[in-house]
Nucleic acid binder design. Structure first.
Lengths: 124, 124
DNA sequence: CTCTGTATTAAAGTTTACTCAAAGTTTAGT
DNA sequence: ACTAAACTTTGAGTAAACTTTAATACAGAG
């Protein structure tokens, strides 16, 4: 079991954010010490790994919360969960292709301006 | 020369947003008709292309405005502009690598849950 | 002459994802 | 037992990038 600070350093999320995620239903059933302090399990950490993965690839927190909620309802929601993940995966692939095109454009610009810079510095 | 609506359909930005960008200094010196209507040139469209490219790859509008401002100051700012673009390019590449790792994780999850779904549907 | 589109400014509202403050409680170390 | 550090809660505040509203007025087409 890990304290909130340990989870902060493991995940890079702030304690504020961890509590916020819990309040928003992204992470549920985090156990507590006798005094009421949060105690995160390894399973919680795995969930956080998935949450960060989805969040950092652009899924809104609401949709992640929905996924978590479905997971809690057991196998009958497997189809919907697979659907959600597949949709997200497709969108991510499109976005990555878009990013690649933008990267190419930026690379072109960098090269263009670098050449222009060398030219300009000759004239000094 | 293009009207604001033509530029909307060409870029996918709203008229509000185009005026907003102008106010924020992202697009400057847009010319006007005798009646005061905006008339966008091909050069303006190219600028908008770059603006969207930078924006959609995560550059904050403020930084884009800074870049535009530098461009207006001429060749003496070439070095700084190249630096800005190169920095952005490096960040973008890192982000794309991160996305690839996340994509792999999601693909793994999709496969895992798909298998679980087939298993579950057998039991029905 | 009317209708639709566009113009202005300025301010308020929206959404997402946090982030902070206050005030009290629990834990760990000595 | 004492104390400092860590933790709790609730509710308010923040930032970015728009989006909307409002009030008023000019432009160009039919």
């Amino acid at each position: 079991m890990y304290s909130i600070q340990e989870v902060c350093s493991k995940t890079g999320l702030s304690a504020h954010t961890l509590r916020y995620y819990e309040k928003e239903g992204l992470l549920t059933n985090v156990s507590r010490s006798s005094g009421g302090f949060r105690q995160y399990s390894d399973e919680d950490l795995e969930w956080l790994g998935l949450i960060c993965c989805l969040k950092n690839t652009g899924m809104p927190l609401q949709e992640i919360a929905r996924f978590v909620q479905l997971a809690h309802q057991g196998n009958s929601t497997l189809r919907e969960r697979v659907g959600l993940l597949k949709d997200h995966r497709e969108k991510l692939i499109s976005r990555m292709e878009e990013m690649q095109r933008y990267l190419d454009k930026i690379t072109w610009k960098v090269d263009f301006f670098s050449a222009k810079l060398r030219e300009y510095e000759q004239t000094l």
